[in-house]
């Protein structure tokens, strides 16, 4: 019979990440944004906790960590996460843990071309100022490069603490190519699930902030949360966050069970993006004029969510992937005693 409980170890991981985010990321929120990164000692401190992408945590524990970090600062979460989204592909290719930041580019528009073991092309935005590895995803292969890029800093909509650059590959030597469909499918599902977890965190953080504000700020003689128009919105935002989280949890659990998880991963990102994009602007709305100002973090979360939802092909690629799988998707329980329907 199904259960939705976290194990003691998972709770510990969650608490550890939550405490780190509150104690170490929150105080420097705007400073990290301005500095386009988190201080090196914080990166080291977080790595010492053993919660980065390079560790063998499993997908489920990872989504717990990413949600907690992103609930405070999704950009910083990327900056702290070492190989980050690229790590599942490095693992699949047997390349081990990244020695620095990694980025993944879903080459939707065909900007990159491989020839004679080298990769050339350019991409308008990656959420990093310095990287150790880049992965370019084509429909049927992943191309991994570990050198041969030029990164030009740019300004981005959100996730500033992660950095932001235009990336150019000048005949970069291809370190590895991943073509096994199953491994590629699982890696993509892992990436989408991780982005989904960041979206859940960002949405939760900004919803909690707006909800607190709404109980303190008064208008027409009562807390604005007690006006039904906002009370209903707050209820819907809370539901949105929970829906997104459950979808992400389900995908992560499927990954950890060794399933292909392509449908679950694509659905998780599509769902998390949709729900977070609903939450982000509405959290600003709840704060009204104050929400638009940099004095509160909700404007940052709104930008972060918009930016996150573009990552790794974003919502569109996730929805297309799900649509490609849907006609074979059985939603019923028949013969599913052991599996997640």
């Amino acid at each position: 019979m199904f259960t939705l409980a976290l194990s003691d170890e998972e709770r510990l991981i969650q608490d550890t990440a939550r405490r780190f985010a509150r104690d170490r990321l929150l105080p420097g929120l705007r400073a990290h944004e301005r500095a386009r990164g988190v201080p090196r000692e914080l990166v080291g401190e977080f790595a010492a906790l053993g919660l980065t992408a390079g560790e063998d945590l499993g997908a489920f524990a990872r989504v717990l960590v990413l949600e907690e970090l992103a609930a405070v600062d999704a950009g910083a979460a990327l900056a702290l996460d070492a190989g980050g989204l690229a790590q599942p592909l490095l693992d699949a290719a047997g390349l081990g843990a990244a020695r620095g930041r990694g980025v993944v580019i879903e080459d939707v528009e065909g900007r990159f071309h491989a020839r004679d073991g080298r990769l050339a092309g350019e991409h308008p935005w990656v959420p990093a100022d310095e990287i150790a590895v880049a992965v370019v995803l084509h429909p049927e292969r992943a191309l991994i490069v570990r050198e041969g890029w030029r990164l030009t800093p740019i300004a981005a909509c959100g996730l500033e603490a992660a950095g932001a650059s235009r990336l150019v590959l000048d005949d970069a030597p291809i370190a590895a190519t991943l073509e096994d469909p199953r491994a590629l499918g699982r890696a993509r599902a892992g990436i989408r699930t991780a982005v989904g977890a960041l979206l859940v965190g960002a949405a939760r953080g900004t919803h909690e902030y707006a909800m607190r504000y709404a109980t303190e700020r008064t208008a027409f003689g009562r807390p604005i949360a007690h006006h039904q128009a906002l009370a209903f919105l707050i209820a819907d935002l809370a539901t949105a966050v929970d829906i997104a989280r459950l979808a992400v949890w389900r995908a992560a659990a499927a990954l950890d069970r060794g399933e292909s998880a392509e449908w679950e991963g694509a659905s998780a990102l599509a769902e998390a993006a949709e729900q977070a994009l609903f939450v982000g602007p509405n959290a600003v709305q709840i704060l009204g004029g104050h929400g638009f100002m940099k004095d509160h973090p909700v404007e940052k979360s709104m930008r972060d969510i918009r930016t996150l939802a573009q990552m790794a092909g974003g919502r569109d690629e996730a929805e297309l992937a799900a649509a490609a799988l849907v006609t074979e998707r059985e939603l019923g329980f028949a013969g599913r005693g052991d599996r997640c329907p």
Partner: peptide
């Protein structure tokens, strides 16, 4: 046809999301 598939995919995704909410409440 892509539109039809998109609608089906949306339905499937939302149905599963609804189911998870029910399951959590029942749990």
């Amino acid at each position: 046809y892509q539109r039809v598939r998109d609608k089906l995919a949306r339905m499937a995704r939302k149905i599963e999301a609804g189911r998870l909410l029910c399951w959590r409440a029942a749990y």
